[in-house]
Amino acid sequence: MADKADDNTINLLRRAFAMRAAAYAYMFDTLREELGEEKALELGMKATRRMGEDMGRNFKDYGPGDLNGLKDAFLGGIIEGERMFSPEVRRCDGEELEIYFHRCPLKEAWQEMGRSDEDVRKLCRMAGAIDTGLFTAAGFTFAGETWKPGESGCCRLRVLPGTAA
Rank of each mutant, 00 (worst) to 15 (best):
L43A: 04
L43T: 13
M45I: 08
K46M: 14
A47P: 00
A47S: 04
A47L: 05
A47H: 15
G52K: 02
E53I: 13
E53R: 14
D54H: 12
M55E: 15
M55V: 14
G56K: 15
G56Q: 10
R57F: 13
R57K: 15
K60G: 14
K60N: 09
D61H: 15
D61Q: 15
D61V: 03
D61P: 15
Y62E: 05
Y62Q: 13
Y62R: 06
Y62S: 02
G63T: 03
G63A: 10
P64H: 14
P64C: 12
P64M: 15
G65T: 03
D66T: 08
L67A: 01
L67Y: 02
L67C: 02
N68Y: 01
N68K: 06
G69N: 08
L70A: 00
L70V: 01
K71P: 04
D72Q: 14
A73Y: 12
F74W: 14
F74Y: 11
G76E: 04
G77M: 03
I78T: 13
I78A: 04
I79D: 12
E80V: 00
E80L: 02
G81K: 07
G81N: 10
E82M: 14
E82C: 15
E82L: 13
E82I: 03
M84W: 00
M84A: 05
F85Q: 11
S86L: 11
P87W: 03
E88S: 04
V89P: 03
R91E: 00
C92R: 00
D93S: 06
E96F: 00
E96V: 12
L97S: 06
L97R: 02
E98M: 11
I99R: 04
Y100K: 13
F101N: 05
H102F: 14
H102N: 03
C104S: 05
L106N: 07
L106F: 04
K107E: 00
E108N: 10
E108G: 07
E108L: 11
A109N: 01
A109G: 08
W110V: 12
Q111C: 01
Q111P: 02
E112H: 06
M113S: 01
G114D: 00
G114V: 01
R115W: 01
R115L: 09
S116E: 00
S116M: 10
E118Q: 08
D119L: 06
D119E: 01
